Amino acid sequence: MMTDVMTKPHQLIASDRVEGTAVRRPNGDRIGHIERLMIDKVSGKVAYAILSFGGFLGMGTNLLPLPWERLTYNTTFEAYQLDIDDEELKRAPSFRADKDFDWGDRSQEAELHRYYHTPPYWGAF
Rank of each mutant, 00 (worst) to 15 (best):
E19N: 15
F56W: 07
G44Q: 08
I34F: 04
M38K: 09
P93V: 00
S94F: 00
G58P: 01
G28V: 13
E78M: 09
P93G: 02
P93L: 02
G60R: 09
K8A: 14
A92D: 06
F53R: 10
S15H: 09
A92K: 02
L64R: 12
T72Y: 05
L89G: 06
F95N: 01
L51E: 06
R25K: 15
W68V: 10
F56M: 09
G20R: 07
L64S: 05
P65N: 04
Y48E: 08
T72R: 14
D29L: 14
K45T: 09
Y80A: 05
L57G: 01
W68A: 14
E19Q: 15
I34P: 02
T76Q: 09
L37Y: 03
E87Y: 05
V46M: 11
D40Q: 05
T76I: 05
S15R: 14
G32L: 07
A22G: 08
G55H: 05
T76H: 11
I50Y: 01
Y48Q: 04
T7I: 12
K41L: 11
I34C: 11
V18K: 13
S15D: 14
M38V: 15
I84H: 06
Q81I: 00
M59A: 11
I84W: 03
K90E: 13
T76K: 08
P9A: 14
A49M: 07
E87P: 00
M6D: 07
I34E: 03
E87S: 09
G44M: 12
N62G: 04
D85M: 04
G60I: 11
T61N: 05
P9L: 12
A47H: 06
G58L: 07
W68K: 03
D40L: 03
D85F: 06
D16M: 14
L89R: 13
K8R: 13
M59Q: 10
S52Y: 04
R30H: 13
F56D: 04
V46A: 10
N27P: 01
D40N: 14
A92I: 00
L82S: 02
D86M: 08
A14Q: 12
L82K: 05
Y73W: 14
G60N: 05
G44H: 05
L57T: 03
T61V: 15
G32K: 13
P65T: 08
G54D: 08
I34K: 01
E88Y: 02
P65I: 02
F95H: 11
V42D: 14
R70P: 00
I84R: 01
L63P: 00
N62S: 13
W68N: 05
A22P: 11
Y80P: 04
G28F: 13
N27Q: 13
T61A: 12
K90G: 03
Q81Y: 00
G58W: 10
L63A: 01
K41M: 11
E88C: 08
E69M: 02
E35K: 15
P26R: 13
I13Y: 01
R17F: 14
S43M: 10
E87R: 10
G28W: 06
S94G: 00
D29C: 11
G60Q: 10
R96F: 10
G60K: 08
G58C: 05
E87D: 10
L82W: 06
K90F: 03
D16K: 15
M38L: 14
